[in-house]
Amino acid sequence: MTSHLRIARGLLLAVALAAAGVARAQAPTGADSSIAPVADRHGYTLGDSGVTLGGYANAEAADYLGEDAAASLRNLSLLLSWENGRRWSFFSELEVENLLTTNADAFGPDYDTELVLERLHVDYAWSDAVQLRVGKFLTPIGRWNVIHAAPLTWTTSRPLITESTFPTNATGAMLHGVLPVGGRALEWALYASPGEELAPEDDSDPFKEAYGLRLDYDLGHGLQLGASLVEFEQKHEDGEHRTLYAVDFLWQRDGWEFSGEWAYRVRVRGDSSADERGAYLQAVAPIVQKLYGVARYESFNPAGTGEGLNLYIGGLAWRFQPGWVAKLEYRFATDNGVGEPEGWLGSLAVLF
């Protein structure tokens, strides 16, 4: 373990113990923190067993410039949760990716299916303010990563800064909860991923070791501000220590929404250093009934390439039934040094 990771682990442990002491003294017992993704609260309850089954499916179609048009059944996820009405709960997400893919130049479908364990964790709640999660969970960095299920997002594509700048899953333990600060709610999460990831996705580069902190403060009037910090090493980058700094915000009112994230990653190997940085700003505006206009701007500079891009996305999202959303977007870029595809992208997603 590097000295940076030892320091990070010590600081995070100290903050966790202090928060736990405050929480036990001040916070009431109750439901789980809103750190949990919205998708966890959907599904079908099986009698009084405490077991809930749910999931989501997502089909996509793309017509990128210079490429054949293609369509795919991109995701099919099964969500299983259990709670005993008191302190213990369980959650898992098992996803089948790329069930079926076809393009305009192919004679038949292409099968490149992969079974992915997204989440598998057990939770114990001492109170709203202090809860323990053990297992595999979504890395609590920013907003998009923890609520990324297709029926819950406004665009088919995911912001570039949330794709590969950090591993999207962590296996280990997390303390989290909600603390009353200044009459408002402060969501906090401290997590450690000290070893191998449970059932890593093919071709991924999971955490080898990581220690992180996430804070999200409700300022009122529909505005939330967040910050994330993580010190980590990845499995396929042996000996390379990384630090990620990130801030984010969300504002919602009367169907309008503005959100954004900024992240900066420092990589150090020997005496050299490189960085990866990026940001996005996204706006959502109600048009008529359940139809919304969506616009997003992204800036992204991947590490080691010396190239970057500015990406512009405009589109529509039609939430025509509860849990259903149809999306259509057009993407174009300037200074596209990373070869990001441009053109039309659409999807149909359902949460059940």
Rank of each mutant, 00 (worst) to 15 (best):
E231Y: 10
G135E: 06
A62H: 12
A210D: 07
Y312S: 08
L186W: 01
F300A: 06
L223G: 10
F332N: 12
D48R: 03
D63Y: 05
L328C: 13
N310R: 11
S299C: 01
G278F: 04
K136R: 15
L213M: 01
Y330A: 14
F166H: 07
F91G: 08
R74G: 02
E276W: 02
E237V: 13
S273Q: 14
G314I: 14
W262V: 11
I287S: 11
S81N: 06
N84Y: 03
T171L: 03
T162Q: 12
A317P: 01
A349I: 10
G47R: 00
L99K: 01
A104E: 15
F232A: 10
V130A: 09
S272W: 09
K327P: 03
D202R: 10
S33K: 01
S157C: 04
R319V: 05
A227D: 00
L13A: 15
G239Y: 06
Q224T: 15
F90Y: 14
V178F: 04
D202I: 10
D63L: 03
Q224P: 09
F207Q: 01
T243E: 05
R214Y: 14
R158K: 12
Y264E: 07
G50H: 02
I287D: 11
A14H: 14
I161M: 12
Q224F: 14
T52R: 15
F258P: 00
I141V: 15
T113K: 02
A170M: 05
A246G: 07
T153W: 04
L244A: 05
E163T: 14
G239H: 09
H121R: 00
S273P: 01
